[in-house]
């Protein structure tokens, strides 16, 4: 082993990669909003910014769950199905009647979380790869939703959700306050709690976390349950937003939920990333989406751009990955 002076020279950098990435993503969002004025005068106005933020709030909440799953090195492909499940159960079980809304909504979230936990059980105990297990859960849930509603969900939104999505307070929509609170909560949970720290340890190196005394098996269920609950909640928000549910209401959210996390600086291999970065990624993606619609590009182009962004972000983040591999080879050499 070389002397300490030579090998410990790197020290703490003032700005680590995560911070830089977060700043870049937020910066890009602002630049985009400003630039969008050139495309259409309606863009970039205060009300337009608020609209973008409302649309971004769906993605922010979804990508918190997806982010936790990616943090432990997994991938959740069941998000669209759980959005639909949350939405359909809300309109059919509660609906406009508001019957028992105060315990029904939490109960629906609990059901969603349970579905997520089932995915987790398949991944941990049946050793099914995460993307396959969540894909299987997804198709089962979608099928149940289809069968349950016979193809056409009925019912409207409970008034509480209408209030959440439509009401304003001090010139700002209520949902934005809610999202800000959620961001604070998510950021603290992921980066400054024992749970978040353990999840990060699990994602960094499952084996080392196990040996350090972390109960990895049960812990691994948590992100899947949280992600499913977040998706279910977004389903409820969408019900409030459009006053109804459809079977395809979640379809367009799967790729953005992954893209937001990856753009936000999390490693797809797990073990790194902050929720603040993910929030930046979600806002950037939503801004971009709004611009694409304004230019009049079709759904196809939008998808291509999203795919390109995911690959581009992965390539940019790869530098870190390569140093990681370099270190690993070094240890093998020792």
């Amino acid at each position: 082993m070389p002397s300490e002076a030579s090998s410990d020279r790197r020290g703490r950098q003032k700005l680590d990669r995560e911070t830089v990435n977060t700043l870049v993503v937020f910066g890009l969002s602002i630049v985009l909003i400003v630039c969008s004025r050139f495309i259409s005068p309606a863009l970039g106005s205060w009300s337009q910014v608020l609209t973008v933020l409302i649309l971004a709030s769906f993605l922010i909440i979804l990508s918190f769950g997806q982010g936790l799953v990616i943090l432990i090195g997994g991938l959740d492909l069941s998000i669209p199905a759980l959005i639909t499940l949350g939405g359909v159960l809300t309109t059919t079980w509660v609906g406009t009647s508001d019957a028992g809304v105060w315990y029904m909504l939490p109960a629906i979230l609990a059901i969603c979380a349970l579905v997520g936990a089932v995915s987790g059980i398949g991944i941990v105990w049946l050793k099914v790869p995460p993307f396959i297990m969540t894909m299987a859960t997804s198709i089962v849930v979608a099928s149940v939703a289809l069968g349950y509603t016979s193809g056409t969900p009925r019912g409207g939104s409970p008034s509480a959700l209408l209030w959440l999505m439509k009401a304003w307070f001090l010139g700002v929509p209520v949902v934005i306050y809610f999202t800000l609170a959620f961001i604070l909560f998510g950021w603290l949970l992921q980066n400054f709690t024992a749970l978040g720290r353990r999840l990060r340890a699990l994602g960094t190196n499952r084996n080392a976390a196990l040996i350090a005394g972390v109960g990895v098996n049960r812990l691994e269920l948590v992100p899947y349950a949280v992600s499913a609950a977040c998706a279910g909640f977004v389903g409820m928000m969408l019900v409030g937003y459009s006053n109804g549910a459809t079977l395809r209401m979640g379809d367009s959210y799967m790729l953005p939920s992954i893209a937001a996390v990856v753009i936000g600086g999390s490693s797809i291999l797990g073990g790194s990333g902050t929720f603040i970065g993910t929030v930046g990624g979600a806002i950037l993606l939503t801004t971009l989406g709004t611009m694409i619609s304004a230019i009049g590009l079709s759904e196809g182009w939008r998808t291509i751009i999203e795919g390109g962004i995911i690959v581009g972000a992965l390539l940019v983040l790869r530098g870190e990955f390569l140093t990681h591999i370099g270190n690993r080879m070094l240890t093998r050499g020792k």
Partner: peptide
């Protein structure tokens, strides 16, 4: 140490307190 011990990317302090983090 590398494959079973350290959690790369976390600080030394975080690595040390992980078992008693709660």
């Amino acid at each position: 140490r590398k494959s079973e011990g350290i959690l790369a990317g976390l600080t030394t302090a975080s690595n040390m307190v992980l078992p008693i983090i709660s």
